[in-house]
Design a protein around this nucleic acid. Structure first.
Lengths: 348, 348
DNA sequence: GTTAGCACTCATGACTTTGGAGTGCTAACA
DNA sequence: TGTTAGCACTCCAAAGTCATGAGTGCTAAC
């Protein structure tokens, strides 16, 4: 168990190191601590804290830096009391969500930009992914004799579209009729069942009315093939290059690893969806990340919800030496704002 | 005027430097040149080439590297003869475009990825932007009592959507009716006139039939406010981090400048649209770029067309020491492929 | 329990040395 | 007149040396 004094010292060291990125020496702590203690005393305490695993030394004659365990302790026990944003920041967060609703895409992208600007870290937003989505509208809009756009609108307002070429020898009129029928028949069914149901319906209803039935099936199938692709949600990244601001990423090789990882959206989304604890807010520090690439990073994420179900994630990626005291309450508020916005939006 | 021998030497130096990123010495050239010349002779020629401005020396006792003028000469005069891709590469390019057409978005994104993979540089694709686009379909799909999706389909198959909240005290049914009327009235008009025409029509036709007319106008205007935004085309970037592979960007500060620039899509698009020469293929070497950020970069771009009009740009961004001999024919073929694809697509 | 004092450690930056790659010039050669 | 061998010279880069200072751990005194 740590004494009150040790808690204070640990907190000071983390705070200082987060700010300066330089190992913190006993003198520095001694000067800042309110309790009038000499550097020597602090040194003793620091040695103890190191022994307990909360601190480490880059080399023998340097100051101390927080270990992974140290950050963990800081986040779990030293942050609770009264960490929150400034009034000004709270206002900015609020104004982010009071603007008119546009495309959902835009909200996610704007949030990512906002977060990265405010924090100087990299922000990731996993776009809203709604499971019990149903079909609102399925249409074919012909462009000319050979091509047409297939439109799918879901109950959550997401729009998917795909351009298809109508095969030779198949009248686009027939095709259009087919979609009209499908639209009526399928309206209201869950999106994930759409593809199979569509094929069923066609087989039942339309087979005899159309020649070139096989071809039509193929095109329809292709038009709906996006299902399960980005219906899983999309990723929005903001401030990628902020990573390069951090002194720990001044080494190009190191920076490249992380930046390249961020380019692989699928991998990033997988990580964001990982949910070890089930908590709304998650902090993954350094090696706590499963992905090797993130060994030197910390990832703070918060889920946002609709009707109690998590539908997306918003997160901040930065060096292990991250300003948790700012990032955590920020993400907390942002995710609440997103929850509010999307709830207003998706539920009637 | 350059002698045959000088041409050969210049070419060799560029080729070598492009490959190795190290200043090329006289010995290296002497060994590679077919003409059995000693290093001393080469040295004389190199001194002449330097005097003429085609080469420069990083410092007194180093080899030579091509100057900006040197690259320019190389691109303009030494590249013409028979530079082309390998059969294998040509096949890969072809297969890129023979796949089924999906969303246009996907084509652009895939092309960017493909190019960056193949070249190890950064690829940019300015998505198809069609000027004489007309309106195919304008619809309102209600999601519930308060929200709805506005859908716009253009003659080129682009789909724009925007979710709007229907203001209190306004029946969504009325709104729906309004869009039905608009769809009929506006179908076929150029997209850029849509917004104003829509407002006109409403004023004429619907004003008396609806209460809360003002409110409806406001929402409609907001729903169509994307016009002129991404109707200008979108930017797709591939292989951003490839920039970090280049030895000239091992300095994080330098790398950050370029990477951050790439994050500002609007700026990038502006540069891509700049068209000094009017040629289909453009090579901008180092300082030839107007943007200061690109002082140490070269940008090779090619436009793709539909019906003779340029509708988009595909480009490669890399260090000045770029493998022009590969990049130029590659972009040439790619842009032809895009032209073909989109022509097949947009014209009947 | 706290602190002053001191010897010790080690990264960092300035300076020097050394090796080697590459040049320019000169003189000899075809 | 063009080409080449030879040589002195330049200058970067890597390795080595050294002084500095920040910070520590330990001990002994308060």
């Amino acid at each position: 168990m740590l004494t009150e004094r040790q808690l204070l010292i640990l907190r000071l060291i983390v705070d200082n190191y987060v700010l300066s990125a330089e190992p913190v020496g006993s003198r520095t702590v001694s000067k800042q601590a309110d309790l009038g203690l000499s550097a020597a005393t602090i040194r003793n305490e620091m040695a103890d804290l190191e022994e307990m695993g909360y601190l480490e030394q880059p080399h023998a004659s340097a100051g101390r830096i927080p270990s992974q365990l140290g950050y963990r302790f800081y986040v779990d026990h030293l942050l609770l009391q009264g960490a929150d944003l400034s009034v000004q920041e709270i206002d900015r967060v609020k104004s982010l969500f009071t603007e008119r609703i546009g495309e959902m895409e835009r909200v996610a992208q704007q949030t990512a930009s906002f977060l990265s600007n405010l924090t100087q870290y990299t922000a990731v937003v996993l776009g809203p992914q709604v499971y019990d989505t149903t079909l609102k509208s399925l249409q074919l809009v012909p462009l000319n004799d050979r091509t047409a756009v297939v439109l799918v609108v879901t109950s959550t307002g997401q729009v998917h579209n795909r351009t298809v070429a109508v095969p030779e020898g198949l009248a686009i009129k027939d095709f259009e009729r087919m979609f009209k029928v499908l639209d009526k028949k399928l309206s209201g069914i869950p999106v994930y069942r759409m593809r199979s149901r569509a094929l069923e319906e066609i087989t039942l209803e339309l087979a005899r009315h159309m020649n070139d039935f096989e071809e039509a099936m193929r095109v329809l199938d292709q038009a709906l093939s996006w299902m399960g692709e980005d219906s899983e949600g999309k990723l929005y990244v903001g401030g990628t290059t902020n990573m390069l601001l951090q002194p720990e990423f001044q080494n190009v090789q190191k920076a490249k690893t992380v930046l390249a990882w961020l380019e692989h959206h699928q991998d990033v989304m997988d990580v964001l969806r990982e949910d070890s604890s089930g908590a709304r807010l998650q902090v993954r520090i350094g090696g706590e990340n499963d992905v090797l690439t993130l060994r030197d990073c910390s990832l703070v994420t918060a889920t946002y919800h609709v009707g109690g179900k998590p539908i997306g994630v918003v997160g901040i990626l930065g060096p292990t030496r991250m300003d948790y005291a700012r990032v955590i309450p920020l993400l907390d508020r942002i995710s609440l704002g997103m929850t509010e916005l999307f709830t207003k939006f998706y539920t009637n």
